[in-house]
Write a protein that binds this DNA or RNA. Structure first.
Lengths: 204, 204
DNA sequence: AACCGGTTTAACCATTTAGTTAAACCGCAA
DNA sequence: TTGCGGTTTAACTAAATGGTTAAACCGGTT
């Protein structure tokens, strides 16, 4: 096994990610992936057997990377609001680095939600309390306002993720308006999410 | 011109919308569209010439339907907050009826944002003040809190639209948690958006 | 030098795909 | 009945597509 490892497999995955993220499983072309990776098309089959297996390798990688951001909730030594703030920081950093990731995951899941359920089962990274269970417990103990955990969770993710999905659209719309899309717009949005969380959890 | 009009063109558009929404321009198959419409494939080309023109007809229709929801901001006889509340009602109704519409528009735009810019130019439905210009004016006149209009706009759309994009994911996640996805979850989310808007615009 | 196994390639195959075509069908008008 | 133009169809074409194959290449080992 002392054969050279030129990193072909890694380059294929990177190229596949680029092409699958843009065109999806059915719209992506194997030749495009090969071209992007700078290799012969037969190599795709040599390393990954077929298109669907290659797609799964890419999608599973994306999904597990995303789930890693949830690990912050396992640290019960921190107060809930602080854990949520760290999660917001994680999500914003993660999506700033991989802006297409959210779109990729959501759009492939919208094609076949059942596959997502099965992947979530196989990929349970979070040990200890989840955000939902932490919220339920905090409400029960009256540590936070009596919020609906599902609505809160959806609101939280809405404010964190949608800005990355819609940034291209907003930049186009804002360009024709009396205001500007500023460089620190995402930073301001992150701040706004934290303010929303504080407002929402505050016991009145 | 007294020839029968069996509604073939309309059925093609409906079928095309279904298939394009699921698979995108490149992933959709013309034979699938024909099968869904219950016609011979050649008719697709007879009525729409080629795949891309058919796609444009569908996408432009979706986009203009969406932009219609913005018309509520032209009614300056209503206070700003009330117009925003009507807009929220419109968006939630619209996306409840066409749940795949948001995903369709966002994902096709993420493939080629430049095309979106050009379609927005060609499709300027909103006359009178836009939400952005109304916000800027209201801040200037100190009628509302000194918010950043771009951040507010993004937050508003995040809370309205993302819940429809992510509903399949959330239903899967919630199914494995101590809480329930209830029938009126979207209604509660709509309420939550309005509370957020009031909180955000409130002068302190 | 010969052999080995992993890696890579050019060429190929069978199927799929978007698009085209000639002709049939249909209702209407003359 | 004939002619017309819009609509529809079965059959077809050329290109694209996922996948396969035989053989060359390469570094390491004997």
């Amino acid at each position: 096994m002392g054969i050279k490892d030129s990193g072909t497999e890694a380059r294929i995955l990177e190229a596949a990610k680029t092409v699958f993220m843009k065109y999806g499983l059915y719209g992506a072309r194997m030749q495009d992936i090969a071209d992007t990776a700078g290799i012969n098309k037969a190599l795709l089959h040599y390393y990954f057997r077929n298109k669907e297996k290659l797609f799964d390798a890419v999608f599973d990688g994306a999904l597990s990377k995303y789930f890693e951001q949830m690990n912050v909730f396992g640290d019960v030594s921190l107060p809930l609001e602080e854990r949520i703030f760290k999660y917001i920081d994680n999500i914003f950093s993660f999506l700033s680095e991989y802006p297409q990731m959210a779109m990729f995951i959501i759009k492939e899941i919208s094609i076949d939600p059942a596959v997502f359920k099965e992947k979530v089962e196989r990929m349970k990274t979070v040990k200890g309390p989840t955000l939902i269970s932490s919220l339920v417990e905090a409400v029960t103990k009256k540590q936070i306002a009596p919020i609906d955990p599902v609505v809160f969770l959806m609101n939280l993710h809405s404010l964190c993720i949608y800005p990355f999905l819609a940034a291209p659209i907003f930049k186009a719309i804002v360009a024709k308006s009396p205001v500007q899309w500023e460089d620190n717009e995402h930073e301001k949005m992150k701040q706004s999410v934290k303010e929303f969380v504080s407002f929402r959890l505050k016991n009145k």
